[in-house]
């Protein structure tokens, strides 16, 4: 009995102060989550620590005493810090996120550490703090030895397997050819300059001049002159209405416009050789359309 009593007294004398102390701690460290990998860390890598702690009222985490962003220790720099506060029953739960970036250099692997951190608590009668222990990791240099040996250390990478692009390439080429052909066709039909066969012909030039001709009275004879001159150039001599049959026989590409051409010559004769009034603007516009159609005949696209 005496022994049991002595043992009880001894246990009580040991555990009581601990229990009292535990009951009186203003804050407690819940968890520390360090990076998953502690080896093969290179310069430029960012490592994160997630710290969770609880503070009982009236204590709370001192925001002003948090580690300062930019602090550097042995080439490890705190680059970001974040705090998340969550209310609990009789206090607060804090999640502190610390991001460190490695700026250490060296030619050989070495041990570095995320530094020990003290998180201060305020609000109570006494100062209190939670100490987060340091965390060690292996820093690996990008190259071993000097720069002169870097080439020797280069290791071939596994060539990635390529996606088969033949079908896509074929479709792309066909689409490109179709696009270019279409564009060339549009240019051939619509362009005024001469850089393809049958382009820049007599009616093309006449059409270009007609487009620049102001649509006003007094210009209709000039319009006629442009068109007739083109006819004469094509025919190789002055073309009159009575010669249209020979013209179509010699230049069958204009035959689809036989009626329009004959009508034009009739209208031209009326305008040039009689005194019948004419709407100059309308006439010049008609001459433009007529000349454009002749240009299409000239290019064999009518």
């Amino acid at each position: 009995m005496k022994k049991v009593t002595i043992l009880w007294l001894m246990l009580t004398s040991i555990t009581f102060p601990i229990l009292v102390q535990a009951a009186e701690e203003p804050a407690s460290l819940i968890s520390v989550a360090n990076p998953r990998i502690s080896t093969g860390i290179h310069i430029g890598d960012v490592l994160q620590r997630e710290i969770q702690l609880e503070a009982k009222a009236p204590y709370q985490l001192s925001m002003t005493a948090l580690p300062k962003k930019g602090e550097r220790n042995q080439g490890v720099e705190l680059v970001d810090i974040g705090v998340h506060t969550e209310k609990t029953g009789d206090g607060n739960r804090y999640s502190v996120s610390l991001s460190y970036q490695i700026f250490s250099t060296g030619q050989l692997p070495k041990v570095l550490r995320l530094p020990e951190t003290a998180l201060a608590l305020t609000g109570g009668q006494e100062a209190a703090a939670i100490n987060v222990p340091a965390w060690q990791f292996w820093f690996s240099p990008l190259v071993t030895g000097s720069i002169h040996t870097a080439r020797d250390n280069i290791q071939p990478q596994i060539k990635p397997s390529l996606v088969d692009s033949d079908a896509h390439r074929l479709r792309f080429v066909l689409a490109l050819v179709a696009l270019m052909t279409g564009l060339a066709g549009l240019v051939y039909v619509n362009a005024d300059k001469r850089w393809l066969p049958f382009m820049g012909g007599e009616f093309s030039q006449a059409y270009r001049k007609l487009r620049k001709l102001p649509k006003k009275a007094g210009q209709e004879q000039q319009a006629l002159q442009y068109v007739h001159q083109a006819f004469n150039q094509v025919y190789g001599r002055s073309l009159f209405r009575k010669n249209l049959g020979q013209f179509f026989a010699a230049y069958p590409e204009y035959s689809p416009m036989r009626n329009e051409i004959d009508a034009f010559f009739v209208r031209s004769e009326t305008l040039l050789f009689t005194t019948q009034p004419v709407d100059a603007a309308q006439f010049i516009q008609d001459a433009q359309h007529f000349c454009r159609s002749l240009r299409d005949c000239e290019r064999r696209v009518a």
Partner: peptide
């Protein structure tokens, strides 16, 4: 002459 001389004349 009839083949060459144009009407309206070239300006």
């Amino acid at each position: 002459i009839l083949e060459t001389v144009a009407v309206p004349a070239k300006s």
